[in-house]
Design a binder for these strands. Structure first.
Lengths: 193, 193
DNA sequence: TCATAGATATGATTTTGATCATATGAATAA
DNA sequence: TTATTCATATGATCAAAATCATATCTATGA
């Protein structure tokens, strides 16, 4: 269930996007909002001499360009980094839902607030220099409060990308954490010691 | 003007906090929201054996624990990293403002959406491995669209922290960018070439 | 005025993560 | 079944940033 569905909205349409295809261009009017079911979409700005500046890579299970809800025209280009599958929603419908239903507005606000929190944690994490400490802190943050165990819902490889390490560095960090008895591990199941 | 003032709310009070003092503890009921005028506040969770896990450092000119707007009790401790000055707001007042005034809700939502966007950009930036490229991309992102010049509102040293570099690495990156004629610079004033 | 703290700046050395290479196991498709 | 792909895993080498050491400049306050 994506955040739009939580508001009781249904998608206007589903859209497929091949790798390299663009979803919108700078200056286009904003009439729709998207939720990424599959794939990744890169947002790119351009200097006036044409130099491209990629500034965001939106992943699956995210809505993206949230800020575009509050402006009329896109200020960047969106290009599919790989094959994508999107849910399409109407922006006016969405805003109307917020106007008419404070509960809906608060629910969406909560979603955004939670995003802010998660992103801040991620930044704090990425700023830890030591790969070993970074991985350890990541695991600690993922373990449910009051618990010591965790089963990863994703591959370690994708964790590596998420926390800004190569997968080699990640596996070495895991090995080091096991050697120093800070974690026990069996596949994607981890336990703090 | 902080985001609460934009909603037409006035602070209930101002609060000073000495370094090391705590603002709230895990389990405390949430009745107030804070905006940091000065200083930094660290949010810390604890494992059941007491091991502290710092997971967020909130800086000046931020509200923080936004997600706490939507829960009743704190799930972490907040401790002043240095001397702090805070504006205090009433949580019920804030929620009431949203309930009664969809415009206010949308305005706050816009603030959160903008935060999400900014934080995502920051993550993308920090994930650039090369210090030189990272600094260059940072500068490009800060230059106003359609312009080539920029005067930093802060010290380069604090920029280094923001983008996850030591200040030495940052100064070397700047020197390299000047040597390769990608920027010109005089103090905190920069120009893309 | 002088002292002090902090930002700016650069050199030398060390550490560490990236990169490249390679191997194994598990899942999936042909 | 076999082939193929991808996650997992580890070793060797290299490049680059961290660290440590200094020095200058600037702002601030005593």
């Amino acid at each position: 269930m994506n955040p739009f569905e939580k508001l009781g909205l249904s998608p206007l349409a589903h859209q497929q996007l091949g790798k390299g295809q663009s979803l919108f261009h700078m200056g286009d009017p904003i009439a729709r909002m998207y939720f990424i079911r599959q794939g990744r979409i890169r947002l790119v700005r351009h200097l006036e001499d044409g130099t491209p500046i990629p500034f965001h890579l939106a992943a699956a299970n995210q809505m993206f360009a949230e800020a575009s809800l509050f402006t009329d025209h896109y200020h960047c280009d969106a290009i599919a980094e790989e094959d994508c599958s999107l849910d399409v929603y109407s922006k006016p419908q969405l805003l109307a839902a917020f106007q008419g239903d404070p509960k809906a507005a608060l629910s969406f606000m909560a979603h955004l607030a939670q995003q802010v929190q998660a992103l801040r944690s991620q930044i704090e994490l990425i700023n830890i220099k030591s790969a070993t400490q970074r991985v350890f802190t990541y695991i600690q943050g993922k373990v449910p409060p009051g618990d010591r165990e965790l089963t990863l819902p994703q591959s370690w490889k994708s964790v590596a990308a998420e926390i800004g390490l190569t997968h080699e560095a990640l596996y070495r960090a895991l090995a080091e954490l096991q050697k120093s008895k800070r974690i026990e591990r069996k596949g994607r199941q981890v336990r703090l010691c």
